Simulated scan of single mutants.
Amino acid sequence: MSEDPRPTASGIGRVLVVVYAVLALAATGRSGYQIATKFAEAPVAYSLSAIAAIVYVVATVALVARGTAALRVAVVAIVFELVGVLAVGAASLLDPALFPDETVWSRFGQGYLFIPLVLPVLGLLWLRRVHRARRASTVAATEAPS
């Protein structure tokens, strides 16, 4: 049996990967600069930016990879991302003193046009669609006459 095609090789899946890759680069650059130049000013905020960067890199790689394990890693990374955006977003509004400088997820991603808030929802919807399509394909293959 041949390897599953990458669901992110074309269409909306490709757009999703591109947006994740751009956020991975932006978050990595921002957190690297913040940690290297002014970490003592806001260690919590800058550490959270680094965590966001790692999550975006992992999600991007998992979305590009093939197979069930990659799909699972993508789901875990994107769920973590959603929880992080919601928790950091709420904390940054409730206690702004914790966040003297912006992070990727502070104020629910306001500095990134709220893309960090919307992206994980879209990502999880996409992954659900991919999972259902794979499951339907597997069922159809097992029911087909030999």
Rank of each mutant, 00 (worst) to 15 (best):
F108M: 03
S92D: 03
I115E: 01
F39S: 05
A65Q: 09
A74V: 02
V79S: 10
F39E: 08
T138H: 02
L71I: 01
G84I: 15
Y33T: 03
R129K: 13
T37A: 05
I51F: 13
A62F: 06
Y56G: 02
V76H: 06
A42L: 08
G109W: 15
A50F: 14
V85C: 00
H131S: 13
L48M: 15
G89P: 08
F39A: 09
A77I: 00
P100V: 08
V85E: 14
A97F: 03
F99I: 00
F80H: 01
L124G: 02
Y33E: 14
G89V: 08
A90D: 08
W126R: 10
V118Q: 04
A133Y: 00
V75T: 03
R66H: 15
A40W: 04
V55D: 03
T68Q: 12
L119V: 15
V55W: 02
A87H: 06
L119A: 10
A140L: 00
A97I: 07
V130P: 10
R134N: 03
L82C: 01
S49W: 00
L93K: 12
R134T: 03
L93A: 05
I35Y: 14
A62K: 01
T68E: 11
R107W: 06
T138W: 07
L82A: 12
P43D: 11
G109Q: 12
Q34D: 15
A59C: 12
I115W: 08
V130E: 09
A97Q: 11
